[in-house]
């Protein structure tokens, strides 16, 4: 793999975080932004990516859309970490019946396709992006737990673990510091990036589908921007500003590419 890819990947991954910060700081009013006199105008100095068919600035919508997935995907990661890491680590470390039960519970969740699980949660509890994030986090936790379980179990009886115990290190410190933080933080980071990318794709897909029927029954609904509903909102307009649907599509593709490159470089460094 070329040496530039990890760098390019990280840069692409940092891009949504950056625009998230910009968006939170700027607080641009994307809801009160309608101005039909500039409907579907192309890029200009005032509107770098032009406007959509209601005359809303595309660049600001693109930037503000980061709020609909960056925060929630961090929430999804937090949920997956909060469930997956302790479950995987403790069942790998302790073994025995408790571990079997934990793993059985997680395998049960994992046996449902993630997308179906998320849709079920939406159907049962209503459609909010935080809820989708929560569901995605829960749905992803078994994958993370299983990966950690396998590694901890194989590390459990390594010499340095015994040596650490002989030195009087407490089990907790060996498990959390040496096994998880020192030896597996890259693995965990890779899974977080994977979940981040998965959530972006999920949110974009749901918001796109929701945007198609115009009523936003899935994902993020207009007028709140999402890269998915931006595409859905524009693509049937006969004389649309091309950038209004192209830009969010490109942004999604680039961030996903960044996640792939970064994730792969983490695997290769570990191997």
């Amino acid at each position: 793999m070329s040496a530039w890819r990890p760098w390019a990947g990280s840069a692409l991954l940092l891009f949504p975080l950056l625009i998230w910060v910009v968006s939170l700081g700027a607080g641009y009013d994307v809801i009160g932004d309608v101005d039909v006199s500039r409907a579907s105008v192309g890029p200009s100095a005032a509107h770098w990516l032009g406007c959509d068919h209601l005359g809303r600035d595309v660049l600001w919508r693109l930037v503000t859309a980061s709020e609909s997935f960056v925060g929630p995907s961090l929430l999804a990661c937090a949920v997956a970490l909060a469930i997956g890491v302790p479950a995987g680590a403790l069942s790998g470390w302790l073994g025995g019946r408790a571990a079997s039960l934990t793993r059985f519970a997680l395998t049960t969740i994992a046996s449902l396709p993630r997308f179906v699980l998320v849709l079920l949660v939406c159907a049962a509890f209503g459609n909010s992006v935080q809820l989708i994030a929560l569901a995605a986090g829960v749905a992803y936790a078994p994958t993370l737990a299983e990966a950690i379980y396998a590694r901890i179990q194989s590390f459990r009886h390594r010499g340095f673990v015994l040596a650490g115990q002989a030195h009087g290190l407490r089990s907790g410190r060996i498990l959390w510091l040496h096994l998880l933080w020192v030896n597996h933080r890259r693995l965990i980071l890779r899974h977080c990036i994977q979940l981040f990318a998965y959530f972006l794709l999920l949110e974009t897909t749901l918001s796109y589908i929701g945007g198609l029927d115009g009523a936003g029954s899935f994902g993020v609904a207009q007028p709140d921007p999402s890269w998915g509903n931006m595409i859905a909102f524009e693509w049937r307009e006969p004389e649309a500003n091309l950038w209004a649907s192209l830009a969010p599509g490109l942004a999604t593709a680039l961030v996903l590419l960044g996640a792939t490159w970064t994730g792969r470089s983490l695997v290769e460094e570990q191997a």
Binding site: I31, G32, V34, G216, Q222, P223
Partner: peptide, 18 residues
Amino acid sequence: RTLESAQEVVINLQSQLR
């Protein structure tokens, strides 16, 4: 839900009233 173009009207109205 089936009111045609309702989405555009609603977003526009929301923006104006805001």
